[in-house]
Write a protein that binds this DNA or RNA. Structure first.
Lengths: 338, 338
DNA sequence: TTGAAAGCGGTACCAC
DNA sequence: GTGGTACCGCTTTCAA
């Protein structure tokens, strides 16, 4: 693999000139430039990005860490990030955490070692404190889909509490009183806030949320099946299920059917995220729209500008611009009861 | 951000010793080692991966290029790659192509510039010739989900023709004669081979495949809806649909229902890939299982070993080990007719 | 316009 | 064991 020196030699010029040509720099004679370009092509020269990075003291591409590649929400995030990267003609380097604290940490560490300046990280398993440290150390690090008060200006998050409230409100307005909730194990803040939102909203009505109505499991289709299984086995009565996400909602629906319960006739179900999935199934799922793609785009832009210019002088309130609002999408999985 | 020299100075040792400690090298006194380690921790030193790479003449992580992050099949690929990367304690750098020739090319180029030695690329839009050139230039480059005869030892692919045949065979055996096919636009080889498989198999029966039975569109849920719309609008008669993938099959199902046609009573539908989606919907989709995750794992292992040792001395036939076999999964979207 | 040379942050060989 | 130092591939002054 030829180096810049090989090219220089072959072209009878100095490495400096070759470098100038590579970077479209000024101060190179037209014919010299042409000649060098030709040689570069002939010898199939490819600049060594590592060597470049070491000199430029930075890495222009944008690094992203995703907690879990298998979550369909991921695709939307990645897509959003990709969009703005493409606009700016930047490459993205994705490092996955595989939903486990150590590998999430590892992923960030590696990106840092490669000196990526703009980092978008979607961490599910790393604790606040560690993240705060990272954020303080790396100006271009932005947290996607996570809220940490101390560094809220570096977070892009969804108002999960409102999301929970929306679900609760809708279902109560439709006359439901016995409301089961399927949450998710783990330290995810999303879960906690959504649950808080649900409880808070329920309390505004004469509907009490009892702990036995809560079932926790995996954030998947199978998780939904199991949760319903458990609910039924425990003999709890419910006319509605509020699920942590669409996959769970659909798994739940399927298991309900398996037990001869029809949705929404016997049980109403509400999902969360509004993935394409929600529209594919019968009945179409009533769910909460999660503007994750927009959020991802925003996070990317923010990371990019922070990495270039640590002082953005944001006048507007951070909360207004960094907090995104979920919205209820009514479809056909909820029925009014009396 | 401290460098190795800063650490050396602070510890009162030479950069060489620090380097040894960082790389767990031998020939460092126990106390010296401890001292250096302490300073490294105190100063929060992080090795510069770019500088390391430039010296080691290589990049240990594995680079992957995926044609399209929004395809759910992607998640499975990524997951497979991730699995083996984790086993080997390697990081993966993913660069997405966003389903467009130029960016796929770009993605490969960038990975090459960073001198990644092991590359797994899933390219949908780049032509054979270009890919062959890349493969010849880069020993550790493996093509996932693609077959190119000239470099078949560097490809991991699905027997798409067989997949098509499986679909055709199944549907004909169930008594269907009027069989519509929904394919996909673009240069994807998968489409072509599957279609060939379908036609070839159909020809073994007294069932003729007419070109008007073919509808091409996007490989998505919406694509399936549109395709059925068109089929119906064109007035073609069919009792079965063979879809390029599950998403299309589900979109088609939905549109059929919208037109008062029930699956499988009025129309039978067969999908492809056997994603989780296929089991979520009603009726559960009869489809072709695509062992893409296994394939991805294999491709990764292959890339890794090729990058280390260009001569593997594979005794077994390449085709046996690189060609994967799709299998029919019967569920409830196909009905026998007479 | 061009080239020489000093780094960038490491690694590794060679002395001691 | 430890340190000195040339060098990896490239960028960027500074002179010429």
């Amino acid at each position: 693999m030829p180096t810049i020196k090989d090219i220089a030699k072959a072209a009878g010029v100095s490495p400096a000139s070759v470098s100038r040509v590579i970077n479209n720099g000024p101060k190179v004679g037209a014919k010299t430039r042409e000649k060098i370009k030709r040689i570069i092509r002939e010898m199939e020269y490819q600049p060594n990005a590592n060597a470049q990075a070491i000199n430029m003291q930075n890495n222009a591409s944008i690094g992203i860490v995703l907690a879990d590649l298998t979550d369909p929400l991921f695709a939307k995030m990645a897509h959003g990030i990709e969009k703005v990267a493409a606009e700016q003609n930047l490459q993205i380097f994705l490092n996955s955490g595989a939903f486990d604290r150590a590998s999430e940490l590892d992923a960030i560490e590696v990106l840092l070692e490669h000196r990526y300046q703009a980092l978008v990280v979607h961490s599910a398993m790393i604790d606040d404190k560690t993240l705060i440290d990272f954020a303080r150390k790396v100006p271009g690090l932005v947290l996607l889909n996570r809220y940490i008060k101390e560094i809220e200006d570096r977070c892009i998050w969804l108002d999960d509490k409102l999301g929970g409230a929306l679900m609760a409100d809708h279902i109560v307005e439709k006359g439901h009183q016995k409301i089961a909730v399927i949450g998710v194990d783990g330290i995810l803040n999303n879960t906690r806030y959504r649950l808080e939102g649900i409880k808070a909203q329920l309390n505004k009505y004469p509907v009490q949320f009892e702990v036995e109505m809560l079932e926790q499991g995996a954030a998947t289709y199978e998780g939904g099946e199991v949760a319903v299984q458990n609910l039924l086995a425990r003999g709890v009565e419910f006319s509605a299920i509020l699920a942590y996400n669409d996959a769970i909602a659909i798994g739940a629906t399927s298991m309900l059917k398996a037990h001869g319960l029809s949705v929404p006739k016997d049980v109403s179900v509400v999902g969360f995220n509004d993935l394409i999935l929600a529209q594919c199934i019968k009945p179409k799922l009533t769910t909460i729209h999660n503007p994750i793609e927009e959020m991802a785009m925003k996070a990317t832009k923010l990371a990019l500008s922070l990495s270039k210019n640590s002082d953005l002088g944001e006048i507007e309130s951070v909360a207004d611009k960094h907090k995104y609002v979920p919205v209820l999408v009514q479809r056909h999985s909820v029925q009014e009861i009396s």
